[in-house]
Amino acid sequence: MDGRIDVVSDVLETMRFTTQLFGRFELGAPWALRVPKKETSSFYVLARGSLRLRVEGVEAPVLLSAGDVVLVPHGAAHVLDDGSRRTLAARDMLSPEQLRGPWLSPLRLGGEGPVSTLVVGCFRFSPGVHSPLFNAFPPAIHLPAHEPGAAPWLAATVQLIAAESASPGPGSAIVVGRLADVLLVQAFRMRVATAGPEGAGLRALADPHIGAALGLMHGRLAEPWTVERLAAAVGLSRSGFAARFHALVGEPPLQYLAGWRMAKAAQWLRETDDSLPQIAERAGYVSAVAFNKAFKRWHGLGPGGYRRARSVGRGGQEGAALPAPGP
């Protein structure tokens, strides 16, 4: 074994996403919802009906039909509506506060027209953790259920979410939250498989050489990697590897490696009691002084200060300590 690991799993595990559910809503036309820019990633599962999504800065709207899922991964401002008009009437706008009803109480909102059933929630990631692979997501990710070639897992997951949210019982929020986690992982997979020329980062995972290099960097983080060693490990020349890596990932190999080392170090500072020298060694630094300087350069404060600032209890209390975001 060469020590390569599943890069997608490592990225999502390091980013430590948690799922927050807002509930299931029966939206009668006319209706509209304006969601401001925020730090969380929204997701919408359309169990019945149709809707239109317009994301700020994106010209073409996304049209959803029953069974579709859409994610707004970077928290861009967006508007959802029933799609019946070009201009939204103020009286038809729902406030984000209306979508914070109790999970066990599906709500009916909007007018008396055709009804769309929507399950709403968001993903929250650990603060300050970024990845070029996640950053390569577009402003909106549409997972259509009925297009030819749609993955069978999508219809099954949406059906389970719709059924559980329609008849909630003990533990329903956890069940639907875990199913929503599956949607995020599958969206990552789908983007890796379909990323076009604009998908720097995600295309790298599908490339046999650069994908292998990323697996080695993630799996053997403490290794004293150089561009030459990485190139040799995946069977490319130094110059060819460096150029290909930069083109597919969006940054040079050692810059990516340094950033990921700092992301993992931040995770270990938040989630373990390991000493600073231990974390420095795990992150590939032979000198604690060099590690301290690099960490401060990336995160704006030293590792000790970061650990104190991010100190939380075990068992998911970090997510619980955060204020509830809007949908």
Rank of each mutant, 00 (worst) to 15 (best):
E318Q: 14
F188Y: 14
A76Y: 12
S41Y: 01
V8I: 11
A233I: 07
F25D: 13
A60L: 09
H74Q: 15
S167C: 08
K296D: 12
L94D: 08
A32E: 06
L104E: 15
A212L: 12
A247F: 00
L214S: 06
G326W: 14
A187H: 01
F123N: 02
W31F: 10
R178W: 04
S172Y: 13
Q20M: 05
A283R: 13
Y306N: 03
V55C: 12
G250K: 02
Y44S: 12
A265V: 01
L301F: 15
A60G: 01
A140E: 08
D2I: 14
P224M: 04
G304E: 12
G259H: 10
G28M: 14
T272Y: 08
G111R: 07
A136G: 13
P224L: 06
G111H: 02
V192Y: 06
P303C: 14
G300Y: 09
S172Q: 07
G250P: 02
V158Y: 05
R261I: 00
L109P: 01
E59R: 13
Q159L: 15
M217K: 03
E39I: 04
S239P: 00
R238G: 10
A193T: 04
E251Y: 04
V249F: 10
E13H: 12
L254T: 02
Q317N: 09
M190D: 02
F125I: 04
Y306L: 05
A162Y: 11
W298A: 15
L236K: 09
G199T: 00
Q98R: 14
T226S: 15
L51S: 13
R229L: 11
P168S: 08
G3H: 10
V312C: 11
L133V: 06
Q159P: 05
R189N: 06
